[in-house]
Design a protein around this nucleic acid. Structure first.
Length: 337
DNA sequence: AAAGACAGCAACCGCCGAAAC
DNA sequence: GGTTTCGGCGGTTGCTGTCTT
C-alpha cells in the first residue's frame, strides 16, 4: 500500500494554459491557498490538470511579484557568480533573486547568459592569443639572434618560394638593437633604420591579426633597405634545448619546432652558415629554415597550442643574460648603453 | 512574400529524497 | 520496514514569434 495516484494521467490536459484556467487557479489559491496538497487542488477547482502542472504554473507564472525578462546587469553578475560556485542549482540561485523563478533563470542562462559569457570568453582568449603572439614574436627574434641571422638583408629573391611575405608590421628597431647588443652582437655603424620604410621585408614579423593590413613595399624599397646588414655576429652557447621549448617554439607533444619539420633535443650551437633544413639536427643552424617558412603558416600552427604569457629561461641561460625571463630581457635597458 | 533558421520561453519529463501508508 | 506517491528540482522538448535569406 502507498498513496493514491496523484491524477489520472490519461484524463488530464497538457500544453499551454488558457486564460480561463489561469484565472481559476489564481483565484482559488489567492482565496484559499494551496492547502498543502497540490494533487487535490485541480479536483477542487475543476481543472483537468495534473497537480504538478498546477504547482508549476503557479510558481513560475501566476504567483504575485513574479518578474519576467529584463534581467539587470546586477542580476547577471549574481547568476554568474553563483553558477560559478554552486553550478546549476537554479532554485538556490533563484532564492537570491526576488521575483525570479528557477525556471526563468534556467531559461535565461541557457538561452542568453551562457552565450554572452562564451562570447566574452572567446574575446578574452583571442586577446590572450594576441598577447602570446607578441611574445612569440620576441621569441622568434631571439632565435634569429642566436642563429647569427642577419635581419635586414633579405631580398625577395633570397626567400624561398614557400615564403612570400607581402604584409609586414613595424617593429621597434631601437629595442631590437638593444636586445641584440646585449646578446653580444654587433650593430653595424652605418645601418639603415627604416625611418622612411617602416615595413621591412622580414619574414618573422607576423601581420597583426586585429589591425588593418599594411601596404606592400615595392621591391626597390626593399632592396634599398637591405643594402646594409644591421645586426650580425651573435654567439650564444648557453642555451639548452629546453630553452627553445620554454620559449614556446616547441610543441611538447610532437616535439616539433614551429617552422621546422622536426626537432630533437640537444645543446644549441650557433652557426653562421646555417641554411640546412635537416629534420634530425639539433643545431641552432636549423633555425635558419624559419626564414624559409611562411610566417602566416607559423601563426596558424602556433595558435593550436597554449603558450605561457611570460616565458622564462632556465637558470643557466638566465644567468648568462642576467635576467629572470625573456620579457625582462627584452624590456630592460642595455647596461652597455 | 515565402520558407527556413534561429531564439526565447512555457511546459513537460524523469529523477531523487522525503513522506505517507 | 517496504512500497508507493509527493514535492521539488534540473534537464529537455516543442511551440511560437522573429529574423534572415
Amino acid at each position: 500500500m502507498g498513496r493514491a495516484p496523484c491524477c489520472d494521467k490519461a484524463n488530464v490536459k497538457k500544453g499551454p494554459w488558457s486564460p480561463e484556467e489561469d484565472a481559476k487557479l489564481k483565484a482559488y489559491i489567492e482565496q484559499r491557498g494551496t492547502g498543502g496538497n497540490w494533487i487535490a487542488l485541480p479536483h477542487k477547482i475543476g481543472l483537468k490538470r495534473c497537480g504538478k502542472s498546477c504547482r508549476l504554473r503557479w510558481l513560475n507564472y501566476l504567483r504575485p511579484n513574479i518578474k519576467h525578462g529584463g534581467f539587470s546587469e546586477e542580476e547577471d553578475n549574481i547568476i554568474c557568480s553563483l553558477y560559478a560556485s554552486i553550478g546549476s542549482r537554479w532554485s538556490i540561485i533563484a532564492a537570491q533573486l526576488p521575483g525570479r523563478t528557477d525556471n526563468d533563470i534556467k531559461n535565461y542562462w541557457n538561452t542568453r547568459l551562457k552565450k554572452k559569457l562564451l562570447g566574452k570568453q572567446r574575446k578574452q582568449q583571442e586577446a590572450q592569443a594576441r598577447r602570446a603572439n607578441n611574445t612569440f614574436k620576441q621569441q622568434e627574434l631571439k632565435i634569429r639572434q642566436t642563429n647569427n641571422l642577419v635581419l635586414m638583408n633579405q631580398t625577395p629573391n633570397s626567400l624561398s618560394s614557400t615564403h612570400q611575405p607581402s604584409i609586414q608590421e613595424p617593429y621597434d628597431l631601437n629595442n631590437l638593437r638593444n636586445i641584440l647588443t646585449k646578446l653580444g652582437g654587433r650593430v653595424s655603424p652605418d645601418h639603415h633604420l627604416p625611418h622612411q620604410y617602416p615595413y621591412e621585408c622580414d619574414p618573422f614579423f607576423f601581420p597583426p591579426q586585429d589591425q588593418p593590413s599594411y601596404p606592400v613595399p615595392n621591391s626597390s624599397v626593399i632592396n634599398d633597405c637591405s643594402t646594409s646588414n644591421v645586426f650580425e655576429g651573435f654567439q650564444i652557447e648557453n642555451l639548452q634545448s629546453n630553452d627553445l621549448s620554454q620559449m614556446g617554439c616547441v610543441n611538447t607533444t610532437t616535439h616539433q619546432v614551429y617552422g621546422f619539420q622536426s626537432y630533437n633535443s640537444g645543446v644549441m650551437e650557433s652557426s653562421s652558415t646555417a641554411t640546412t633544413t635537416s629534420t634530425e639536427s639539433s643545431s641552432w643552424a636549423d633555425m635558419s629554415s624559419l626564414l624559409n617558412y611562411s610566417p602566416y603558416n607559423m601563426v596558424s600552427e602556433y595558435q593550436e597550442v597554449m603558450l605561457p604569457q611570460d616565458v622564462a629561461f632556465d637558470e643557466p641561460a638566465a644567468a648568462y643574460f642576467g635576467c629572470n625571463n625573456f620579457s625582462e630581457f627584452c624590456t630592460t635597458s642595455n647596461p652597455n648603453d
